[in-house]
Design a protein around this nucleic acid. Structure first.
Length: 849
RNA sequence: GCGAAAGUGGCGGAAUUGGCAGACGCGCCGGAUUUAGGAUCCGGUAGCCGAAAGGCUAUGGGGGUUCGACUCCCCCCUUUCGCACCA
């Protein structure tokens, strides 16, 4: 009798996998490939079970696919640049490089202790110059194509830390690090022209059939396409300008009673000069500008605005309307100006009520009527309907009016159809040290020029003193900043900002295909074989950022003729968090479950199995120690089973189950269960990604093998084979064969979840071949077919009896059997059968009166 | 406010095409084994009535479609997530 002690062999198998290079792969055109990827990790120091869940999900898929005959690429690496390491450097004086490398090696060891089947030879970190070199190379290609450009824009500024913060680093108006209220500053920034692909990316969401609906709808909302028109209103007097507005409700244009500009609108400064009280005008504009962004973040803010005193002419009816400036109109969206239609837009309505603007009703909703007095109405009427008071367009439906009005405006040169997106170009400049240097120079004579490819990478210079003071740490290193212009040879200065780390993560999955390439980011050949990623899993928090950026990069590569696909990820799984005491694990909350201590106590396999068994992968789960113990118990149970049978199973002369006939009914039942389990587990893992039900199917099989083996008759046969070996009776061989079939299939199917134990059992069962690449058990439909069914009999939809019948019994016979059944007859007394429904061998329902 | 998803025993969760609701596991109860505890093995475990046989009620609530609804349709409630002045 041996005992299940994972501590005795976990390390042994991990060592063998590494020394045999079991998970390393090469291109093999003869075999179908499968690229299985989990979102790579930010090396924070310690992985907790929440992180680890994702890696286990990917590992089960990768290991299963390997056994199914696929050439599986399953790599891992590190998203190693970023603020936390730099902040730690400021706080504790440890260089980001040092802390990052230390964290990586610790986390790598954690993943290895879990037995995740990564091709570690492909590992890289984004802070490796051999990786970020290609960020720079790519940046230059994008610059050449006009996809990377510089412009002035407003950014979040923390006055205490004296640095710029990314949008996502501003939490409730304040700096995420020190809580100081952030300000808005205008700075020169580099942008990626993602908006060029906005429409394409949006339209292609329809093709992402294997992505969760939730992620697709988040992306659609984020891109935020809206169709409408741009219309020019000519200013009267004062300025000889047009004010262009964007609207999706051109049908309401006869209801315009004002134009409203955002405080950031380009005309605002000139309008202020025409104002009777310039200083008051400018004061208000500045107030709005500083308030605007923080107001948006905090949610609700009172609508404020003022009349500029200027007027503009509505090209449709020639009416003259006042031009206002208000805080609720966004500068970055559309044209930065809107037409106010208080009768048909709730925001305009509120604004009009507050500031006494006229309200003009021009669209009568279907079934509604035109209000007699505007004083009565309490909210805008936003529904489509029939136009009133709209000149030649009166009586048209909203839809028809939009079309005709748009054409009307276009003919007269006062408007055009327009599509606007909520998505903005991606600002990638970061005034930080720990990131990829932007490979650009500024020369007095030649302007902004890229670093020549031959000078790449622009290495991140050594830095010792992290103060967090002053902007762009790199600007403090004069040896870095001062250089020569590659065009004229004169003095030039380097760009001192670094790239957003989302640039790093937007294409790392291509690099895994060809991680050692020195000539290019990757070769077309390797990427053509391995990409797109077949199965990608990670947290839903990346639904918009990383997953949109990557879709953008794929298209950039495509247009650079480096790849020949549009979409980088075929199938996406977003895994749920692991909670402890109802909330996400975090160091600050002190509720972190450390995988290492669990592995120490129960072994890697029990942890792996529990995490997969507790719920479907997309769901959030609450961590429970007792659940983990249950999984450990199951593994112990499997172990004991194999241990009990190993003598008999390793006897020579046992025929394969498929070579024998005339099994007893008990044996048939176990075989049926074995093959049905193969079917269920395969579908659950491969197609449905319902790992929890795959495991419960295997648990059922184990229960079945136990009850089969516990019978004294079978146990006698087991002993007979153990003692007599090849001289055993055919009956004894049959019993052992059936168990052998079940246990072997079980060990194979369980191995993606519990690879260490299964390797050990495989060895124990005398198998020579390598389990990692062993064949997935083969499902035999004929064996899985039940010979007998239990058919429920209902009367008026209520369960009354069960019939045990042979498979394939004709309807007629089933019906008469049901009617003869005593339990059924009891319920049929004094009742008339109106109808009998037989659902193809599954159920009988008698309808009575 | 808008959008999406979800709501099933004490708990995590099953139910593949509209066809036996509660698979599997946790927990709990009982039995076997054991000097004892632990471990293990076996059995029980939605609620209510009943000694039992059996019956009734149950998938957030209310209606509907159907021979039959956790599953489809309508209304409502609750929870979670996402978006939130995008004109």
């Amino acid at each position: 009798m041996s005992e299940y002690k994972p501590q005795d062999f976990d390390k042994k198998w991990q060592g063998k996998w590494a020394s045999n290079r079991t998970f390393e792969v090469n291109i093999d055109p003869a075999r179908p490939k499968f690229y299985c990827l989990e979102m790579f990790a930010y090396p924070s120091g310690h992985a907790h079970v929440g992180h680890v869940r994702n890696y286990i999900i990917g590992d089960v898929v990768a290991r299963t696919k390997r056994m199914l005959g696929f050439n599986v690429l399953h790599p891992f690496g590190w998203d190693a640049f970023g603020l936390p390491a730099e902040n730690a450097a400021i706080k504790h004086g440890i260089h980001p490089e040092e802390s990052t490398r230390g964290n990586i090696s610790h986390m790598k060891a954690q993943l290895q202790r879990l037995g995740i089947s990564y091709a570690w030879e492909r590992e890289f970190a984004t802070c490796d110059s051999s990786y970020y070199k290609w960020n720079q190379w790519l940046f230059i290609r994008m610059f050449e194509k006009g996809l990377a450009y510089r412009k002035r824009s407003s950014v979040n500024w923390c006055p205490k830390c004296d640095t710029v913060l990314a949008n996502e680093q501003v939490v409730e108006d304040g700096c995420w690090r020190c809580g100081t209220l952030t300000e808005i500053r205008d700075l020169e920034q580099w942008f990626f022209r993602i908006t060029k692909y906005a429409n394409e990316i949006l339209e292609a969401t329809g093709k992402l059939a294997k992505w969760p609906e939730k992620v697709l709808s988040m992306q659609k909302n984020w891109i935020g396409r809206s169709e409408g028109s741009k219309i020019k209103f000519k200013m009267e007097g004062g300025l000889e300008e047009n004010i262009e507005i964007f609207t999706t409700r051109l049908d309401t244009v006869f209801g315009v009673t004002a134009l409203i500009l955002s405080p950031e609108h380009p005309l605002v400064d000139r309008l202020s000069l025409l104002s009777s009280d310039k200083s008051e005008f400018q004061k208000k504009v500045l107030e709005f500008r500083s308030q605007d962004r923080s107001a948006r973040l905090s949610g609700e803010v009172e609508k404020e605005g003022f009349n500029t005193g200027q007027k503009a002419r509505n090209p449709f009816d020639g009416s003259s309307v006042e031009v206002w400036i208000a805080n609720f109109v966004l500068g970055e969206y559309g044209t930065g100006a809107v037409m106010a239609v208080p009768a048909h837009d709730q925001r305009d309505f509120e604004f009009a009520r507050k500031f006494g603007l006229p309200i003009k009703f021009v669209v009568c909703p279907n079934g509604g009527s035109v209000p007699t007095s505007m004083d009565q109405i309490t909210e805008a009427s936003i529904d489509y309907g029939k136009l009133v008071n709209s000149g030649e367009f009166t009586e048209l439906t909203s839809l028809e009016a939009k079309k005709q009005m748009s054409a009307w405006a276009q003919e007269r040169g006062v408007g055009e159809p327009s599509i606007q997106f909520r998505l903005k170009d991606w600002g990638i400049s970061r005034q930080r040290y720990w990131g990829t240097p932007i490979p650009m120079l500024s020369c007095k004579k030649d302007g902004i020029v890229p670093v020549p490819d031959s000078d790449l990478p622009v290495l991140l210079p050594p830095m010792t003193n992290f103060t967090g003071q002053g902007r762009s740490p790199l600007s403090q290193i004069s040896e870095f900043v001062n250089t020569t212009c590659p065009v004229c040879g004169g003095p030039a200065s380097r760009e001192t900002d670094t790239m957003d780390t989302f640039v790093d993560s937007s294409w790392y999955f291509y690099r895994f295909a060809d991680p050692l390439n020195n000539e290019a980011p990757f070769s077309a050949k390797t990427v053509k074989y391995w990409l797109p990623v077949d199965f990608y899993s990670g947290g839903v928090e990346h639904a918009i950022l990383h997953l949109i950026y990557s879709r953008f990069f794929a298209r950039v590569f495509r247009d650079l003729e480096m790849v020949d696909h549009d979409e980088p990820f075929d199938q996406l799984l977003t895994q749920g968090m692991v909670l402890k005491n109802g909330s996400a694990m975090s160091k600050s909350k002190g509720n972190v479950i450390d995988p290492d201590s669990m592995i120490q106590k129960y072994g890697a396999d029990a942890l792996r199995l529990y995490v997969m068994f507790v719920a479907p992968p997309e769901k959030e789960v609450e961590w429970t120690d007792s659940g983990l113990e249950g999984s450990y118990r199951f593994l112990t149970r499997v172990w004991r089973l194999a241990d009990k049978w190993k003598e008999a199973l390793t006897s020579s002369g046992i025929p394969g189950a498929s070579e024998l006939t005339d099994f007893s009914s008990k044996e048939k039942t176990l075989r049926q269960k074995t093959h049905d389990t193969i079917r269920r587990v395969t579908v659950d893992i491969e197609e449905r990604h319902q790992f929890n039900t795959a495991i419960s199917a295997m648990m059922e099989l184990v229960n079945e093998i136990y009850s089969f083996g516990e019978s004294s008759e079978i146990d006698k046969r087991r002993q007979e084979v153990e003692n007599l070996k090849q001289k055993s009776s055919i009956q004894a061989f049959k019993a052992v064969t059936v168990v052998a079939e079940a246990i072997e299939a079980l060990v194979r199917m369980l191995s993606p979840f519990a690879p260490h134990m299964c390797e050990e059992l495989w060895d124990m069962l005398g198998k020579q071949e390598d389990l990692t690449n062993a064949e997935w058990p083969i499902f035999d439909e004929k064996v899985a077919r039940l010979e007998e069914f239990i058919v429920p009999v209902q009367i008026n939809g209520k369960m009354r009896s069960r019939l045990t019948v042979a498979a394939g019994m004709p309807e007629k016979e089933l019906k008469s059997l049901a009617l003869k059944d005593p339990a059924v007859r009891k319920h049929l007394l004094e009742k008339k059968i109106v109808k009998v429904i037989v659902a193809k061998g599954r159920l009988v329902n008698l309808v009575t009166k």
